[in-house]
């Protein structure tokens, strides 16, 4: 048991990029354990997915044809049988919304240790060393897992995507799925980010976060948006509070934006937010906390109170 088993992620007929990131992370880990990298894809167009997943570093692709869209009960059963057959040392799952919907259940069912949202992995003797963040990214930690089979969910965007093609063998895996054990049904999908404005089309975004403190203070930001002829967007808490509609949200669960200039006001820059705006051409951060994670990706920074800077900026354009 030195092999690594990684589980691909797909949705509505498309493999998600994290599937190829898993191939990279899995290869690195398999090189340390001295084993093979198995990549499994479950449900949907698995033959097409299987071909695409045979990238550099992958030894075997297992295709499990049961089911169309993601269903955690199908995944749990299939992975249980894959683990039984392959007997891997480590199982890697994306730390995606769907990954989090089955990984803890797989770990429970198979009595594996689980470590989630890891940003780096290493092997030290018999132990797995996982690097992860705590306190919303304020610190990084290393966690050591004892010998034994372990499951790790990996954060999206932390490993490069595997490229090229490998002469991996693609094998159909015959899983036995007990339909009676399937207690949930997916009935459909909806896009939530429609509506009056498409923030991903904007050249200049003024984006507001928790630092705005009160809903009434949004008027100040609207004045700035008008003065600059910009488009207004926000981080998640503003939408959670119901202060702006969902179509204004930048981030992993909202929109990915790539404007010429992105002005982040009172946004700390949690990883979920950064995932949605790091491709912006020029990033300006206005925040009282000089250590806020947003500063890591900012091109220009003002470490000051937005309630002082924003009125002064409005003044400049009037």
């Amino acid at each position: 048991m030195t092999d690594v088993l990684a589980i691909a992620d797909h949705r509505r007929g498309e493999l998600r990029p994290v599937s190829y990131e898993l191939a990279t992370a899995g290869r690195e880990l398999a090189d340390e354990t001295g084993g093979d990298l198995h990549l499994a894809v479950i449900s949907g167009a698995v033959d097409e997915f299987g071909e695409k997943l045979a990238r550099e570093g992958v030894d075997v692709v297992h295709t499990v044809a049961d089911g169309e869209e993601f269903n955690h009960d199908v995944y749990v059963q299939a992975i249980e049988q894959l683990v039984d057959t392959i007997d891997p040392q480590y199982v890697l799952v994306p730390n995606s919304v769907n990954g989090l919907d089955y990984a803890p259940a797989v770990a429970g069912r198979l009595d594996l240790s689980i470590v989630t949202d890891v940003v780096d992995l290493a092997v030290d003797g018999d132990s797995l060393i996982a690097t992860r963040e705590m306190y919303g990214g304020k610190v990084e930690t290393t966690t050591e897992l004892d010998a034994g089979t372990a499951l790790a969910t990996i954060r999206e965007g932390e490993w490069p995507e595997a490229e090229g093609t490998a002469d991996a063998s693609i094998e159909a895996f015959d899983a036995e799925i007990d339909e009676d054990a399937v207690g949930s049904t997916v009935t459909g999908f909806e896009e939530v980010a429609g509506g009056d404005v498409d923030i991903s089309e904007a050249d200049l975004l003024v984006s507001i976060g928790r630092g705005i403190e009160e809903e009434e203070n949004l008027d100040l930001i609207r004045d700035l948006v008008d003065a600059l002829d910009a488009t207004l967007s926000s981080s998640r808490p503003i939408v959670d509070n119901g202060w702006l509609p969902a179509n204004r949200q930048v981030g992993q669960s909202g929109k990915v934006v790539t404007p010429d200039v992105y002005i982040a006001i009172g946004i700390s820059g949690a990883v979920q937010h950064v995932a949605g705006m790091k491709g912006s051409d020029t990033i300006v951060a206005i925040n009282t906390d000089p250590n806020a994670p947003i500063m890591d990706i900012a091109d220009y920074a003002i470490h000051d109170d937005l309630f002082d800077v924003v009125p002064a900026l409005i003044e400049e354009f009037q």
């Binding site: 949705r11 993601f70 919304v97 919907d101 997916v186 009935t187 992993q252 929109k255």
Partner: peptide
């Protein structure tokens, strides 16, 4: 269920 990228899954 709130999936990534502004997509929601409806399930029972």
């Amino acid at each position: 269920r709130e999936l990534e990228g502004g997509v929601e899954e409806l399930s029972e």
